[in-house]
Design a protein around this nucleic acid. Structure first.
Lengths: 350, 350
DNA sequence: ATGAAAGCGCTAACAA
DNA sequence: TTGTTAGCGCTTTCAT
């Protein structure tokens, strides 16, 4: 798929910045900067004639106040920040929910994603928060923080919080109930060797899902076998490796519950490499229900998180905090098992 | 799906901002602000002992320089902006491509979405650009601009540009070829009454797709019927209305080519309302291949745009502009028809 | 009704 | 090697 390009090229002008500043407007209109500021911000105490004159210049020059400068001077910006590690499907869904909810509430939305080399991931949101907070944004929603947030004065709410998220209000899906339902379903299908590929153990959600897995095993009377639990870190490649190990064992599991959909797709990769068919030879269940889950071949049985609602609720909580209201410390939204094609009865022993 | 909440609540502290500034660090370390600045930015000419002393205070206080303040003082920020109307599926895909490509290039990414009431949409990116440009961001990628961009000194590249995108380098999919292939496919299936639901006619892409539609009709020897073309504005609800009109006509079309997938889903809605089966009674083709297209019931035949590559290429172009290199004025990436379940032979006349 | 001046947090000349 | 000073663009007292 080679790109076609038109022949004309473009070179960025190297002349100095031509940004129109408030000073330009003031000079042009023959008034002081203070007056321009008043006009632009609709303050009282400006003669109608002056207002008109200034506005004319503003329009002609296309002046817009610099967010940066006014932000530095004022406290507030009317901008809310969303901090995320990257625009992965999961984050994108959440963002849609947040965005849809923010519409018409008078706030602009700013999604900030760190330029993250894999090793420097640690604590990037702390740095970013400090750099943006108090100046650029009035409040923030943080997706799956890698660290406990510092106690800032700026309102913050976390989605899918870190373990031991001390003082930060958070919004999450009910991971334990969801996982338990999923694994119970596998047990009901007759599976007894059910493996679990865990998520990022620094996150609450990973623990919750593992807890649900264990609870379901116990409920079904299946003894817990720690060798059937492997680490996937919520990543496709890591999950692939973990699944390969699991599936190459002599007495391999007949079902795998992955801690999220991305990991489940890693299991798909492993099955493909080993020539195992899903669901005939191996049942797979994920968690999250990102769009890719439905689109996968075969479509993935998974646990739906109400990502849109979660985003919306996080925004509501943040808005309430901004108003100085009391907000619930932790909100848990219910999950639901979605049965698709990646799960089936236990394969007959060859 | 009612949320469960823990009982504890949280009230945001109302005390004044506790942001640690460079002045705090200077005072604490017993040096001048300038020295702290030099240390933090790794400038030469600071005694090792001083550096150490300052860094200790920085760590203890958790100081991070304010993006806003330093941005105001310096020209550059090492931050690239992506301006979008909202985090719709299409934008999310593009964002993933941009983000994946930006990783490790030394720039942070900032996605800015206006708080857009439907009526004030017009020209929002112009306002946003002015507010952010020159100060907060070093360059920008704009998705489907609603307006011709002002000629700023800041490097900008447009994805899916506005019609008559005069001076701004742009990246787009080859909409005409894609549309032509799609409609030719419908014609080959035997359809002769093929309707088209157009996109936002202020965008180049909408024109290209309509051109492709017409070209395919001509190629197939089907006379163009302007009553079979309706406006959908790239929106699901508008497309729904347009499709209802089209499908209620006495001699209704047997196939509809929608200008994008979202519009195609609007056609699905219409078909459902009217009790028409897809593809038995009506064939539908979309454009874009967002994840929802594959997940739809029935899955949607559509034209794939290489959204990830487009995002990546836009970033490359922007980076080159930042370096002062010459860049191609317009890049077109090839599209491909993906045949799924929403298309079939012409229904036999009842 | 208008403008002069101070200052938000930071960096870059320039002096010391 | 360090500190002093000026100023980025803007808003906000406080005089006039």
């Amino acid at each position: 798929m080679l790109p076609t390009m038109s022949v004309a090229t473009f070179t960025a002008p190297t002349t100095s910045n031509d940004r129109v500043t408030i000073t330009d407007v003031a000079r042009e209109a023959g008034v002081s900067v203070a007056t321009v500021s008043k006009v632009v911000n609709g303050r009282y105490g400006v003669a109608p004639a002056t207002t008109e004159k200034v506005m004319a210049v503003v329009d002609r020059l296309g002046y817009e106040s610099s967010l940066v400068a006014s932000s530095l001077r004022r406290g507030a910006t009317n901008v809310l920040g969303v901090l995320l590690a990257g625009f992965d499907p999961y984050a994108a869904e959440l963002l849609k929910g947040i965005s849809a909810h923010a519409l018409g509430r008078g706030y602009d939305l700013l999604a900030f994603s760190g330029a993250i080399a894999d090793d420097s991931t640690q604590e990037w949101e702390k740095r970013t928060m400090s750099r943006l907070g108090g100046t650029l944004i009035d409040g923030a929603i943080i997706l799956t923080p890698t660290i406990n947030l510092p106690n800032t004065k700026m309102p913050v709410v976390a989605i899918d919080p870190h373990t031991g998220h001390a003082g930060t209000p958070s919004v999450a899906a009910d991971g334990k109930a969801g996982a338990q339902e999923a694994v119970k379903y596998l047990a009901d299908l007759g599976h007894t060797r059910i493996a679990h590929i865990r998520g990022r153990m620094d996150l609450d959600s990973a623990h919750q899902r593992e807890d649900g897995y264990k609870a379901a095993l116990e409920e079904a009377g299946i003894p817990f076998d720690h060798t059937l639990v492997a680490d996937g870190g919520f990543r496709r490649t890591w999950a692939l490796g973990a699944a390969l190990d699991l599936l190459r064992r002599p007495n391999r599991p007949t079902a795998i519950f992955a801690a999220n959909d991305v990991s489940a797709l890693g299991v798909y990769d492993a099955a493909k490499q080993l020539g195992l068919r899903i669901p005939e030879d191996l049942s797979v269940v994920g968690f999250d229900d990102i769009p890719e889950a439905k689109a996968a071949e075969p479509s993935l049985t998974t646990v739906t998180q109400p990502l849109h609602e979660m985003g919306g609720r996080a925004l509501d909580v943040l808005l309430d905090m901004l108003k100085g209201k009391e907000v619930p410390m932790h909100s848990h939204l219910a999950t639901r098992l979605v049965i698709r094609e990646s799960t089936g009865p236990v394969p007959t022993v060859e």
